[in-house]
Amino acid sequence: MIVALIVGCEIGFWLLLGLGLACRYLWHRRTVGAALLLAVPLLDVILLAAAVIDMRGGATGDVRHGLAAAYLAYSIVFGHRTIRWADARFHHRFAGGPTPPRPPAGGMARARYEWTLWLRIVLAYGIACVVLLGLVWLVDDPARTEPLVAFMDDLLKIPLIAILWPVSYTLWPRKVESASS
């Protein structure tokens, strides 16, 4: 059930995002578009609630339950940014909006940008761990929740791998071409 819900929530995310932006820019239904975009994070809350119900019902925790926490953490930390990113591109492509902003091309501005992104990844990891620890506490059965603790260890690889980008931009910054060249 949880796997189907994960797939459904992923599909629902893109459907709500696409329909919300289409309502906003193609069909000029800003209120409906805003409601659809506001509903996007609710999918992750539904997924997490299903994971809690499943575990409270006797299921042993595994990657499926861990993903519910990770999806919620992503929505909290990156959700608004993702919607803003998609909104800018949709507005530009379909409604004649301005060219979407790009990250800095290089130099220390790009390094700061990459470090900020990495800190967001660390924050998302922290939130996912807090949610998973809450689930471990709620279930209160170490035999069934041990895989969730192992999942937290696996999740730690994400910020550790992602640190390569800000470190590389800090140690070897791209040269920024001047406008006068």
Rank of each mutant, 00 (worst) to 15 (best):
R102T: 10
L47V: 02
K157W: 15
L21P: 02
R112A: 12
L133S: 11
D153E: 09
A73R: 00
I158P: 00
A39I: 02
P142Y: 14
T170E: 07
R144D: 15
H80S: 14
L72M: 13
V52R: 07
L171F: 07
I127E: 04
G79E: 08
K157H: 13
G20N: 04
R110I: 08
S181T: 12
L19W: 13
I11F: 08
C23A: 14
L15K: 05
A111P: 00
P100G: 11
A50F: 03
G134N: 07
A95E: 10
A95I: 13
S181P: 06
A70D: 02
L36N: 00
F151L: 07
R29E: 10
A162R: 02
L72D: 01
W172R: 07
E177T: 12
A73V: 06
R84T: 12
L15Q: 04
I6Y: 01
T82K: 02
V52N: 01
L135Y: 04
W115L: 04
Y71W: 06
G20R: 03
A128C: 09
G126C: 13
I53Y: 07
A179Y: 06
D62R: 09
P101M: 01
E114K: 03
L72P: 07
L47R: 05
S75Q: 02
G96T: 11
G106I: 07
E10C: 01
D62C: 02
P100D: 12
